[in-house]
């Protein structure tokens, strides 16, 4: 995911904080935030992940006129060669693609008015044999978020895992 322009906005922070059940006024109340140690509204710790909204090619967002692998009149709108048991590899985040790890390093906390870029760098790839889901293939990406001055504000490291079959529930 490369993002050329991720404008950090107060209403987006408000919606994001609500979605994780966090009613802390530092994320929504300007007067409260101004009187606090921080001095202004900031974003919750995992907000940088919402940069996906500003990635024009983000593959987990349906786009007008483009095929989408979720259900419509039928269970899936796209014929997938390997869709039967979720054993497909990537392509649409089907059962094969899950989020294994996520790490953030905060050089400073972001606020409404910041305009960020996100540059993605490939990381390591490794494999492991899993009891619950067959062979596991791990893939790491590093995302560097920079502000309008070019300063590094957040470094994110994500690890995705692809599995041979869906992970069993309740194991």
């Amino acid at each position: 995911m490369a993002v050329e322009k991720f404008p950090v906005e107060a209403s987006h922070i408000l919606m994001f904080a609500r979605s994780v059940g966090d009613e802390n006024p530092i994320y929504s109340d300007e007067a409260h935030a101004a009187a606090s140690e921080v001095g202004k509204i900031i974003a919750p710790p995992t907000f940088a992940q919402a940069s996906a909204q500003f990635d024009p090619d983000y593959f987990l967002r349906p786009k007008p006129g483009k095929p989408w692998f979720g259900s419509g009149g039928e269970p899936t709108g796209i014929k997938r060669e390997s869709s039967g048991s979720g054993s497909g590899s990537g392509g649409g985040g089907i059962a094969a693609g899950l989020h294994a790890e996520q790490h953030f390093e905060y050089h400073r906390h972001i606020s409404p008015g910041d305009v960020l870029t996100a540059e993605v760098k490939p990381g390591k790839t490794w494999e492991k044999e899993g009891k619950r889901s067959g062979k596991l293939i791990f893939n790491e990406t590093i995302t560097e978020y920079r502000d309008q001055n070019g300063d590094l504000v957040i470094t994110a490291r994500g690890v995705g895992v692809r599995t041979e079959r869906p992970v069993d529930a309740g194991q």
């Binding site: 987006h12 979605s19 919402a50 983000y58 979720g70 259900s71």
Partner: peptide, 16 residues
């Protein structure tokens, strides 16, 4: 899903 922009049907689409 709406706030983060991750609309993976695995999280929102019971049928799929």
């Amino acid at each position: 899903a709406g706030a983060s922009g991750d609309y993976n049907p695995l999280h929102t689409d019971e049928v799929f």
